[in-house]
């Protein structure tokens, strides 16, 4: 098994995945097992230093992930922090997560992968990743391998002791990051509790405190909540993903919180921009905005696209 995950082989896996070749199932099994051994050592709150480039939701838009490496620089020349939602919705979730798994194994201290709400068995059965695995490999085994890895991904990252990075947002159960450190994260994302809130919750500009979503589950958090959390933990900013932004990013609450969104032309029809957030050594944040890769259209001649006229009733 070990020779499959040697540096030499990882380089080959990265190269082949970049060309959108699917890796054989036994290779994926070896890679996923190795990665679990690596991720289990990461804390629920990983501390890293700038410079680092932070990436938001990708959702299986593989060609746009390759575009990110063109815009932001290759790994490991650039340090990367991904904030989750690697899979579902896009056409190439398998290729996207395969590449990220390989890169994390090859350069473990140059790239960090935070868990998003789509890194879950339940969600991926409703939003495409499960179906894509079955279609591309003829069996759900590959889906099992990847979703097992998801259980090991960290929940948050702090950059330079200043910027708190998470997929969704804050939780009423979490006042200090010490309360994140004690969460037992090695499991499916639960429906409720602090682990759910970290990957699900959204900021709310209309209310200062916490409020419940009109859907009857999930929190929204306001400006005062953010201010108190930052002060108590000695941070100055929250950087999160999880929500679509037409211009690729959004800055809220007097620059105390920002959302980074990295899936341009989301679902191949929204026409939105995307961005990556480059945190420089002096702590400055720069949102590097980019548009959808031209390669998408080239590789996306699906049946629906070519059959332009439809005799619907």
């Amino acid at each position: 098994m070990d020779n499959l995950t040697s540096t030499h082989n990882l380089d080959e896996c990265i190269e082949r995945t970049m060309r959108r070749e699917l890796l054989p199932q036994p290779v994926l099994a070896a890679l996923c097992n190795k990665l679990k051994e690596l991720l289990i050592k990461e804390s629920n709150v990983v501390h890293i230093s700038s410079p680092v480039t932070v990436v938001g939701d990708i959702h299986g838009q593989f060609y746009d992930l390759l575009e990110i490496f063109k815009v932001g620089g290759n790994c490991p020349d650039t340090n990367y922090l991904f904030l989750g939602d690697y899979v579902d919705r896009g056409l190439f979730s398998v290729e996207t997560i395969t590449l990220l798994v390989c890169l994390k194994l090859r350069y473990p201290s140059r790239i960090y992968l935070v868990r998003g709400n789509h890194e879950s068995r339940g969600i991926t059965q409703s939003y495409g990743f499960y179906t894509e695995c079955v279609r591309k490999y003829g069996t759900p085994k590959v889906w099992t391998l990847f979703t097992d890895v998801f259980d090991f991904m960290t929940l948050s990252v702090v950059v330079d002791n200043q910027i708190f990075c998470v997929h969704g947002g804050l939780s009423p159960s979490i006042q200090s990051i010490d309360q994140i450190k004690v969460i037992d994260r090695f499991k499916e994302i639960p429906h409720e509790g602090p682990m759910a809130d970290l990957v699900w919750s959204d900021p709310d500009e209309t209310r200062a405190q916490f409020s419940i979503s009109p859907r009857g589950a999930g929190y929204m958090f306001g400006k005062d909540i953010v201010k108190v959390f930052l002060e108590r933990n000695g941070f100055d900013h929250i950087l999160r993903a999880h929500q679509l932004c037409q211009s690729g990013f959004e800055i809220l609450f007097d620059d105390q919180l920002s959302t980074v969104w990295s899936a341009p032309n989301y679902c191949y029809r929204c026409g939105n921009m995307a961005s990556i957030c480059e945190i420089q050594e002096n702590g400055e944040r720069f949102f590097n905005v980019f548009d959808a890769s031209a390669d998408n259209e080239h590789h996306m001649q699906t049946a629906a696209e070519t059959n332009i006229v439809e005799y619907f009733l």
């Binding site: 009423p172 159960s173 006042q175 409020s211 419940i212 009109p214």
Partner: peptide, 11 residues
């Protein structure tokens, strides 16, 4: 388990 936050109803 609301930790002192008043989140009993939908706003």
């Amino acid at each position: 388990n609301s930790h002192g936050h008043d989140v009993s109803k939908i706003h």
